[in-house]
Design a binder for these strands. Sequence first.
DNA 1: GTGAAAGCGCTAACAT
DNA 2: ATGTTAGCGCTTTCAC
Lengths: 342, 342
Amino acid sequence: MGEQLRRRPTLADVARMAGVDTSLVSRVLRNDPRGFASAETRERIRAAAQEVGYRANAAARGLRSARTMTLGLLLPGFSSPVYASIAHGVEERAGQHGYGLVLGTHAAGDPHETITDMLMHGRVDGLLVASGRIEDRALRRLVGQVPQSVVLVNRQVRGVAASVVLRDADASAVAVAHLAELGHRRICGIFGPGGLDTMVRRRLGFLAECREQGVEPAVVEMAERDQRAGFDGVGRALARDPRPTAVVAGTFPMAVGALAGLHDAGIAVPRQMSVVALHNDGLADYLVPRLTAVAMPTERLGAEAVELALALVNGGEPRRVVVPDPPRLVRRESTAPLISND
Amino acid sequence: MGEQLRRRPTLADVARMAGVDTSLVSRVLRNDPRGFASAETRERIRAAAQEVGYRANAAARGLRSARTMTLGLLLPGFSSPVYASIAHGVEERAGQHGYGLVLGTHAAGDPHETITDMLMHGRVDGLLVASGRIEDRALRRLVGQVPQSVVLVNRQVRGVAASVVLRDADASAVAVAHLAELGHRRICGIFGPGGLDTMVRRRLGFLAECREQGVEPAVVEMAERDQRAGFDGVGRALARDPRPTAVVAGTFPMAVGALAGLHDAGIAVPRQMSVVALHNDGLADYLVPRLTAVAMPTERLGAEAVELALALVNGGEPRRVVVPDPPRLVRRESTAPLISND
DNA sequence: GTGAAAGCGCTAACAT
DNA sequence: ATGTTAGCGCTTTCAC
């Protein structure tokens, strides 16, 4: 019959119940190698803990050990499928290491505030920044204060040594190569703002592969990278002379918007215009037509970011990581061989 | 010239620098009403804190005050637009109250583990459960252990007293009324699993409004509520005899799937079949055709859940809240007047 | 194999 | 208006 406690049970409660000292309870419950209690005592302690429903208080533990076992993840918002996927990868891998996740977005407030609060108050052991929107300067300033624990996700910034990115240039190349193989010779790339380094890499990869393939490239640069930007961007692509016969959209939402824009313009996809998205998403199979896309390992991106962050937390050196998995073409219905040359 | 500290500055550092006691620093920095320091001292303390870059240690503060200033949010995953929107509402409102957000999903692991960990270890002051997938029993068990701090979001469970839901039945009614006004007399509702209480309410509202409007209802119940379920579900709807002339999809992704399914079946929307989605999303404007949808106040749902949780944390009584904002029809291109009776 | 004691950084009750 | 004191619950030497 355990005494009924009104308050949260503490180590002391368990210790009293098992007739041992708190320190021993602590060691046993954490499987501390230095806590080699006799099998019998161990059992008694475990039973007592079980009985009162003991749960270590995270604050006390964190205060004492200076480890929160929590990682922070800073996102631009919850909406984009790419960020959802990254977040999923982060959460899963963090969980495998026994780490929890504190989430912050900066859709509304001042990004630098959020960042500062999480790291500076010691709420998290490390911070993953997966937002393209925070200014480089703010980032450098932050990292100047706590260099050991900030990892950039899907982004590189001069002066920040720890980052994980994907093979963006190769993704563009895969898209272009696919279209070239289908016979397209005038391809338009619709990209987001040139200030975002993913976009820079994708555009460079696009241009390089066009040259490689003997394809005439056109580039449209938009101020955003959402559906509307794709919708508007494809209008600009159609105005080009000579008109391209295929489009590479810099993001998945842009491709969705491009599809809508082409439909509104009365251009049939893929008969009159082929469309490829950079990044894949479950939605692709439910669009009309089903969207050909270049799949990128976004979950793994999140997972690798966690690994790097934990390495830093444990005193490792900052590194620039490129997730090695190659981008992979998922062929669906929005691309087809070039038919007429006009 | 401030001494350069290697370690994180603490209250004691600031106190020493300002030539006062730590307790005074604590009070001044928190604007504690009982800490009426002289303007001059206050300034000195603020300056010192600024100089060394003092940030209160969250663990120590949490340990002492038994408040973490953090809320937990349990989601089924990051993908669904509805959950993204709820999460956004939660984060924003929590932030307004100075609360941070710990995120947990249970896409992969055992949901009850995640829940337990967050609440039981005192990492969060309250927990918002926005997952339809966790079994009622597990939920009741959890709430039995920590009744004061668990709020169900978009869900009601017998035995759990604190919850916030939307006017689901009214959303269905809005959709049906719209279709009835367009002349439709045979409407099919495609819903997710009957075990989810949102789905129950939407189906009931659907049937009630059909009766009200003198419309012949058909109901298709799917095991999921994603795009695929909508795709497959619309196939089942088409097989009904007499064939319905309009479809109400129980979720937004289901409507997306339904659109795709109808296209594959060669049924023109809205000429041959009207489609309405329950819940709205930015994607609606970029589908072909643009999707008519019933907008529901999901961000506010999240915000209200935060309010309720904080009320509980502060000793308030659990309540069942229904967000009062009425569902609102957003008319786009996927619905049209009934043309032929066959 | 187990216990005693100190202290992480902060807040709050009680002085003065 | 400011300082003293105690202690939140845990981990960690160091002793025995």
